[in-house]
Simulated assay, not measured.
Amino acid sequence: MSSEKTLLRFGVIADPQYADVEPRLEYDRYYRNSPKKLADAIDTLNGEDLAFVATLGDLIDRDWESFDPILSVYEGLRHESILLPGNHDFSIAPQRLTEVHARLGMPAPWHHFLRGGIRFVVIDGNEVSLFSTPEGHARHAEARSRLAALEAAGAINAMPWNGGIGDGQFAWLDQMLADARERGEAVIVMGHYPLYPENPHNLWNGERVTELFERSGNVIAYLNGHNHVGNLGRTGSTWYVNFKGMVDTETENTFAVVEVYKDRIEVIGYGREENRSLAL
């Protein structure tokens, strides 16, 4: 381990997926155990020097009422908390769908911020999906046609619990990466859905996004949850790190601290999360 200074350290949590419901043993998911796991993770992360802690979606499994118990645990976090939604965060009454981003304290469904000289970009893969908008909404219809096209093409990620990003968001992301490149900033993108390697859980238009990252050349990492078993891949100059789901297993926890250096990214895993050293 070289002794040079870290540019940045931050925490990562994925898929607490809390609900006051019985476990689904076939998936090894223990929904009621997540607040305790989250509190334990926060206790550890509070002892670290971190710029922020990001939670990569699926704070709840279902029901608007589930947000209060899990979000109250974050009140014990001494670091800045950055939350983004996953598909399960929209498993709520239709009339509340438009309130999810505000409930998570997000400035916008997709946004960016600078920490330690690194540009962080949050994307919203729920934008075009069957769950983020009610029947009759234009984006709901777009989601139906996108899913039908993927099914017709035999795509392995043609699943109703995945989503995609719209053309407007894609153009915004393209511009964000171009602006960061002009300023000489390295970029880390965060979202709920994996993009790479190919997987049944991937964002519907994930290939289009990975091609954009490859063209841009300045996205050093993409961080996500959603696929609870975790994953890792690299294409172009971008590492794709899929963090494991906290809701899985009765007692084992999973979360991470990420350290960014000039020449590498170190993932320090806790519980089921793996340690990784990713050369840049």
Results as ranks from 00 to 15, higher is better:
E26R: 15
L278N: 05
A186K: 15
G271F: 01
S81I: 15
I188M: 14
A143P: 02
K37L: 00
G236S: 11
R29M: 10
N87R: 03
L147M: 02
L150I: 09
D263N: 02
S91L: 14
S72R: 04
R62P: 00
A158P: 01
L150D: 06
V73Y: 03
E266P: 03
A152D: 12
T210I: 14
H226E: 13
R9P: 00
M159P: 01
I92H: 01
Y27M: 13
V189N: 07
G57T: 10
S34C: 07
W239Q: 00
R139A: 08
R96H: 14
A221P: 08
N218W: 11
G154K: 09
H88I: 06
L150W: 03
A153W: 14
E211N: 12
Y261W: 02
V121D: 03
F52N: 05
W161Y: 13
G236C: 10
G269K: 05
H79L: 04
K36H: 15
M246A: 04
N227A: 03
N33T: 13
L147Y: 02
R234Y: 01
E211M: 11
I13D: 06
I70D: 00
L38N: 02
Y18P: 04
H140Y: 15
E207K: 07
E135Y: 11
L114M: 15
V267A: 02
P134Q: 10
F67Q: 01
T249D: 04
D263F: 00
G184F: 08
Y270A: 09
D58Y: 07
L104C: 01
L56N: 01
E214W: 12
N33Q: 13
A138V: 12
R9G: 01
W204M: 09
Y31C: 04
V189Y: 09
E142Q: 08
N253Q: 11
R264F: 10
K5H: 00
L71W: 04
R276D: 07
D124T: 07
L83N: 03
V258D: 03
R208A: 09
V219L: 01
Q17S: 00
D43I: 02
A149F: 13
L114G: 09
A155K: 15
I118A: 00
A171N: 09
S216N: 12
L50V: 11
D68T: 12
L177Y: 13
Y270I: 09
Y18H: 03
D28S: 00
H112L: 14
N242D: 04
E252S: 06
L278P: 06
S81Q: 13
E99Q: 11
G164N: 10
K244T: 06
S34V: 02
G236E: 08
A186N: 14
E273W: 12
D124M: 07
S66R: 05
L56M: 05
R146H: 06
V21I: 15
S81C: 15
L130W: 13
F10N: 05
L173Q: 02
V21R: 04
V247G: 01
G191A: 05
E65D: 10
A171V: 04
